[in-house]
């Protein structure tokens, strides 16, 4: 990152005439950006209301269509399928980005037809799982793209 900024300064004609000023500006921008990203990272856990009630409702419908057969009406799991609620589930996924759970569902589920949920459906089902584990709903929907999901941390215990 620093290296790229340095190169930018050298090739920028404006930078040549006001090197000190632009340098300060760049440092300022980097400073602000890092503040923002730090605060984002700190704020983004499953405790911060990262999905909406409406989305979880959509996810519940998909869950009953595609997942309930194996994981059960109360997400309790079966003889051979993992529970999706409670301590075993939350400790398995503890300290991982939400994108990991999203990708596991998207790639391998449902097991009789892997990789057949769309990204949106996967996001909705994930929202339903969050709600089922009593992580709170919020004002914005859980995104379906991987990058922002990587910024949301699964934390079993409330920080």
């Amino acid at each position: 990152m620093n290296h790229e900024i340095h190169e930018g300064l050298e090739t920028n004609p404006a930078g040549a005439s006001h090197p000190a000023h632009l340098g300060t500006f760049v440092i300022f921008v980097v400073f602000v950006v890092s503040i923002v990203s730090v605060s984002l990272a700190a704020a983004a856990s499953v405790w911060d209301g990262v999905y909406t009630e409406e989305q979880a409702k959509r996810g519940e419908t998909i869950y009953y269509e595609r997942c309930v057969v194996c994981h059960g009406a109360q997400l309790e799991g079966g003889d051979m399928t993992p529970t999706l609620v409670g301590g075993l589930f939350t400790s398995t996924w503890n300290d991982l980005p939400l994108s990991d759970l999203f990708e596991r569902i998207r790639i391998t589920m449902p097991l009789n037809q892997p990789s057949t949920l769309s990204r949106q459906q996967t996001a909705d089902v994930t929202a339903f799982l969050l709600k089922s584990n009593k992580w709170p709903a919020g004002q914005t929907e859980l995104p379906r793209e991987l990058e922002p999901l990587k910024e949301i941390q699964i934390q079993a215990l409330k920080p």
């Binding site: 051979m80 399928t81 097991l111 009789n112 037809q113 892997p114 057949t116």
Partner: peptide, 18 residues
Amino acid sequence: AEVWGPGDCCAADAGIVN
């Protein structure tokens, strides 16, 4: 609830079975 076994799924071509 139908009980599926640990080997009942996920083979390479599982997606083509309905």
